[in-house]
């Protein structure tokens, strides 16, 4: 059945994401029961729907890892690439076709470990791509190894005696590298995630959204943090809206839009100026 904007509009919000499922693709998804990836997927779809983006103009690019299995389920252009390289592929898609809305779905291992080099350069370039880094603090797909965001002292299959390394703060990293929209949210705070994802996608420039997500199968189990709902409750208690200053907020992780820069120019725009000037023959 072809889904048109009209047929989506009169549907209610609670099942709008159903109309974005990819035809012929078996559902439900392959993620563990209660996995945060599914929550992010429904929020992403609502955000895209709210922005009214035509499906033909949206390209999802992902790397390798649990979260990167998302694009197959959604009815957009979808490119499931190689480990760590989603942003490099997405840069090619966007730079060749600036008319497309390019969204990268990646994880803490995919984007910050093997893909770190492409992440910092994509931020530096300020290319108009939205990157959703679903941070579940561990390598889920390969069975629970330590990742660049696994907290010090935490257990993973490759840190059986506790993680001796410090972790990245993904949002600080992205902001430091030049991303002009940086936000953090969690799979508990779904209304906020809907808003933040829509803002990020609408932003003209490199948007980086870290979504704290539950991997109770590995991170939760190996660190005795309990089930999916226990981790969701943890995200509720351990975070606070950005900007809150009262006593109860300190020591908590700020969530919401952390950084927004509307001055810095965007890569495709700047290059297009050169192409335009050359075509008018100004420059020899």
């Amino acid at each position: 059945m072809t889904t048109t904007a009209e047929s989506v509009a009169e549907q209610r919000r609670s099942d709008v994401h159903l109309s974005y499922l990819r035809p012929h693709k078996k559902f439900p998804n392959l993620w563990c029961p209660g996995c945060g990836n599914g929550i992010v997927m429904s929020s992403l779809v609502r955000a895209i729907d709210k922005l009214g983006l035509p499906r033909d103009e949206v390209a999802l690019v992902s790397g390798i890892g649990c979260s990167s299995r998302m694009p197959v389920y959604l009815d957009f252009q979808a490119l499931h690439t190689t480990h760590g390289r989603a942003l490099a592929f997405a840069t090619g898609v966007k730079f060749a076709r600036p008319d497309l809305k390019v969204i990268v779905i990646t994880g803490d291992g995919d984007a910050l470990s093997i893909g770190g080099n492409h992440l910092i350069h994509a931020c530096r370039r300020n290319i108009d791509i939205t990157t959703i880094l679903i941070n579940n603090y561990i390598y889920g797909m390969t069975g629970g190894q330590v990742s660049p965001t696994t907290p010090s002292g935490a257990y993973a299959t490759t840190t059986p005696f506790g993680n001796t390394e410090k972790h990245f703060e993904p949002c600080d990293l992205a902001k430091g590298a030049g991303a002009t929209f940086v936000a953090r949210t969690t799979v508990y705070h779904t209304p906020q995630m809907d808003r933040v994802l829509a803002d990020a996608i609408a932003h003209h420039g490199f948007s980086f959204v870290e979504v704290l997500s539950n991997c109770h199968t590995y991170f939760g189990r190996l660190n005795r943090l309990g089930s999916a709902t226990a981790l969701l409750q943890m995200f509720k208690e351990k975070t606070t809206s950005v900007g809150k200053t009262e006593e109860s907020a300190n020591g908590k992780i700020p969530i919401g839009v952390l950084h927004r820069d509307l001055e810095t120019t965007e890569l495709c725009d700047e290059y297009q100026k050169i192409v335009d000037s050359l075509s008018k023959g100004k420059q020899g």
Binding site: S14, P28, G36, G38, S42, S43, V187, T190
Partner: peptide, 18 residues
């Protein structure tokens, strides 16, 4: 309040009213 269907990872709940 939408807490259920907004948090369902498998799109298995939808509201009949929203």
């Amino acid at each position: 309040c939408a807490m259920c269907w907004m948090h369902c990872p498998d799109f298995a709940i939808t509201s009949n009213y929203r």
